[in-house]
């Protein structure tokens, strides 16, 4: 294919390169720069005054005697966010896999309809959907009412503004990102492989664990990544369903640029998060590169 010379090919991707460079690369560099500056007294930064204080204060704080003391507050917020994201990913997988499997087993026509239904929540603003969940979950809310009407007196669910509410909200928000890639991998699964498993004496459970799950693994992993990583960066859901009492990384970062007026620290937190996500992705891709090599 010598239709496009090297020179001409560059111009084909130039718009994308320029767009990403300008709107993603540049802000990232700026953030990195801000994270190693001193904070301004009234917000903003002291341009030209370099300091690694922001990164240091992620783990340490200075006491009155100017000694460094370990402060695990921020680390805890990070760990909590990772834990909550992991919980959400697991919940989404537990709900998403059977859903995807069910859809994949339907006749072609009905499958498309189900996939369409799965994507319907995207039509509504995420803020509106989270407010809707507040109405559902709050004491005296719809779920409370329903439970009471079937004779279960909870005396108030007391679930809104807890980590559980946040996890429910996040699971709801990111469930389609789990369902769709798993569906994609199950849909192209050769039905005759399942028949072959039955033929060789595998019951339904064995066929699932030995044949279907391993073959759906790429979809499951893709779904897990698509749920886990956006969860780490979730802002609206913990803000609303966690009621601000329950902070996740994004809320912490947001507060640094807002009320706390500590831009360098906010930037530094962003980069710590970015580093962690990249590290996780690196481990994943190395592991799967090896698996892919084994498979081919």
């Amino acid at each position: 294919m010598e239709i496009f010379t090297r020179h001409k090919r560059f111009w084909l991707i130039a718009p994308a390169v320029i767009y990403i460079g300008f709107f993603m690369g540049l802000p990232l560099v700026q953030m990195a720069y801000v994270s190693i500056l001193e904070r301004g007294v009234n917000g903003g930064v002291e341009w030209g005054n370099f300091s690694f204080d922001s990164y240091v204060s992620f783990i340490f704080e200075r006491d009155l005697m100017d000694n460094l003391m370990v402060n695990t507050d921020y680390l805890q917020i990070f760990l909590r966010s990772f834990g909550l994201s992991a919980l959400t990913t697991v919940l989404a997988l537990i709900l998403g896999f059977p859903t995807a499997f069910y859809i994949a087993m339907q006749p072609q026509k009905r499958r498309n309809m189900f996939i369409f239904l799965v994507t319907i929540p995207f039509w509504t603003n995420i803020l509106v959907r989270n407010y809707a969940w507040m109405l559902l979950l709050r004491n005296g809310g719809l779920i409370d009412h329903l439970l009471a009407s079937v004779g279960i007196q909870t005396g108030g669910l007391d679930i809104l503004y807890t980590p559980y509410a946040v996890s429910i909200g996040l699971t709801y928000t990111y469930l389609p990102f789990m369902v769709l890639p798993i569906y994609a991998s199950l849909e192209k699964l050769d039905h005759r492989l399942i028949e072959a498993a039955f033929d060789l004496g595998a019951n339904k459970r064995k066929a699932m664990t030995r044949i279907i799950l391993p073959l759906a693994a790429p979809g499951i992993v893709a779904g897990a990544i698509l749920v886990f990583i956006p969860c780490l960066g979730a802002y609206v859901t913990p803000e609303l369903l966690g009621g601000g009492k329950f902070m996740m990384i994004s809320n912490l970062i947001g507060s640094q640029f807002g009320a706390a007026r500590n831009w360098p620290f906010g930037s530094a937190l962003s980069f710590v998060l970015l580093a962690m996500v990249l590290l996780a992705m690196l481990v994943y891709s190395l592991k799967f590169k090896k698996m892919a090599e084994d498979a081919s």
Binding site: D190, R192, E195, A196, L200, G201, A202, R210, I211
Partner: peptide, 27 residues
């Protein structure tokens, strides 16, 4: 099918792609 002592050679072979040849046979 899994309770019948009858096995099938499928038209498309339907070998399990994630298992080795030996694992296919021992399945």
């Amino acid at each position: 099918p899994f309770k019948r002592p009858i096995n099938t050679v499928f038209q498309s072979y339907a070998l399990f792609p994630h298992l080795t040849v030996r694992q296919n046979i021992t399945f």
